[in-house]
Design a protein around this nucleic acid. Structure first.
Length: 503
DNA sequence: AAAAAAG
């Protein structure tokens, strides 16, 4: 029988931690916290089966802080290691350590990709009490010899099933083998597929298993609707705008999920062009944009966030009133994760899924998974009019402006405009989306050209930029002026490197 | 068929 724990004080946490928890406004531990914290404090390995939104992060952060109160870190030898599948999740865990560790003097290092190595190296050099990392960057630092893992006292593997989905398991195995055998391991996963079970047998020693109920897969607090649409992208976008407008003030903020990164970009630009307060989030955006987007959305400075499945799981975005599936998720579990972004913490939420004819097989899979029939918002697909499937209507608005394939878009990291820089009506959204340059990543001549172009644009005064945008608007929007900024050859350009059709 | 993560 389990004793009902009602306060954090009963869990054996230290005064420093308790005071920080109190300041954060929490009084009652969640089931996973009540279950895990005493065992973590006792030094036991823990297998936590819990989803995000259950208070999982604090269930390891709080007791780890207590464990860290004794002893101190040595250079390049972190005392604890937390592995996360995505950069945003890693950053989120860091925030938790900062918030609850405010009465401690801890060195926290966050090792994630997409940002410079130098800061991270400095923090490692100083000696990290807490090291939070995504696997790729951690291994990178290790291979550069900036890191010794032989002093790790506690290892946390978070979102293990997602790591599996993302192909991180070999990395995890490799990292685990670098750690001392005597460490304590805390392992969290929302589900337990056979591969994960195998991992736990490999890396956990006599773990305490704590399983908490899923936060009701698709609970009653979420109103779910299917929305019929023509299959053309413009038709789906029009349908989405219609829905957003129809929800009016009831829609406080929303995440709009697309299946592909390119569709995130396209939809984001379309919404901005239609003067919606929108941002974008996907894995090919540069890290700075990802961070600011998420932050602005959390703070309520941004009403709509168009996102890939990077935002479907784990991210702590409280109080989202609506979720829109612009695309039906192909994996039905993703549906559950996506709509789980709303209706949290006892609030109500709405989830709309835009459905076209070819999507029906996925809808059926979703209905099977969640064990319920989803209702249609305004009639099923048989009630679509022929007009819905027609070619794009000429509305006379800028919405139908022809846009050629922009190769830059798919090859280079992009930085969508921030809400503060919401374009004026005379300035198309694309230009401002491209105005903030990202570092060129490709090798070779093309990359140097782009990089030179980017730094040129970055240093150009705003009005010059606007002027050029207006100029470029018509025929030669792409690389009209690039032949002047070739780097490394002076004025000489070898013939074979010249862009066909250019002088 | 796609996203994420090391470039």
């Amino acid at each position: 029988m389990t004793q009902q724990v009602t306060t954090f004080e009963e869990l054996g946490l230290s005064p420093k931690v308790l005071s920080a928890v109190k300041d954060a406004g929490y009084t009652t531990p969640t089931p996973i916290q009540a279950g895990a914290i005493p065992h973590v404090l006792a030094g036991k390995d823990v297998l936590g089966i819990a989803q995000t939104g259950t208070g999982k992060t604090a269930s390891f952060v709080l007791p780890m802080l207590v464990r860290l109160e004794r002893g101190r870190a040595r250079a390049r030898m972190p005392r604890t290691l937390i592995l996360e599948p995505t950069r945003e999740l890693a950053a989120q865990v860091e925030e938790n350590f900062t918030r609850y560790g405010k009465n401690h003097r801890l060195n926290i290092a966050l090792l994630i990709g997409g940002v410079s190595f130098e800061d991270q190296e400095r923090k490692l050099e100083r000696g990290a009490d807490v090291l939070i990392a995504t696997p790729g960057r951690l291994i990178d630092h290790f291979e550069r010899g900036k890191l010794l893992l032989t002093g790790v006292e506690i290892l946390v593997i978070d979102e293990a099933d997602r790591m599996l989905d993302m192909g991180f398991i070999p990395d995890i195995e490799r990292i685990c083998k670098l750690l001392p055998f005597t460490r304590q391991t805390l392992f969290f996963s929302a589900t337990m597929p056979p591969e994960i079970t195998k991992l736990t047998e490999q890396f956990l020693q006599a773990p305490v298993r704590i399983e908490v109920a899923k936060p009701a897969t698709t609970n009653e607090s979420i109103t779910q609707k299917l929305v019929k649409s023509g299959s053309k992208p413009w038709a789906k976008r029009a349908r989405l705008r219609e829905l957003i407008r129809a929800e009016g003030d009831e829609l406080k903020n929303a995440i709009i999920f697309c299946n592909r990164k390119t569709d995130v970009s396209t939809l984001f630009r379309s919404l901005v062009r239609h003067e919606f307060d929108a941002g974008a989030l996907h894995g090919d955006m540069d890290q700075r944009s990802r961070t600011t987007m998420l932050e602005n959305f959390r703070k309520g400075k941004l009403r709509l966030l168009v996102a890939s499945d990077v935002a479907a799981r784990g991210l702590d975005i409280p109080d989202v009133s609506h979720v829109f599936n612009f695309d039906v998720p192909v994996h039905s579990e993703d549906y559950v994760h996506r709509i789980g972004r709303t209706g949290r913490g006892g609030r109500t939420g709405k989830a709309f899924t835009i459905v076209t004819k070819p999507d029906m097989k996925y809808v059926q899979a979703i209905e099977k998974l969640i064990g319920q029939q989803l209702e249609w918002y305004d009639g099923d697909l048989s009630t679509l009019t022929p007009e819905d499937e027609a070619e794009e209507k000429q509305t006379g608005k800028s919405g139908s402006r022809r846009r050629g394939k922009d190769s830059r878009q798919s090859r280079q990291k992009e930085s969508p405009s921030r809400p503060a820089e919401k374009p004026a009506t005379d300035k198309p959204a694309e230009e401002s989306a491209a105005a903030e340059p990202a570092p060129a990543r490709q090798e070779g001549q093309k990359a140097r050209q782009q990089k030179a172009k980017a730094s040129h644009e970055a240093s150009a005064p705003a009005k010059d930029r606007q002027h050029r945008s207006a100029q470029d608007h018509g025929h030669s929007r792409h690389r009209g002026h690039e032949e002047k900024v070739v780097v490394g050859f002076g004025d000489f350009i070898p013939d074979f490197m010249k862009i066909p059709g250019k002088v």
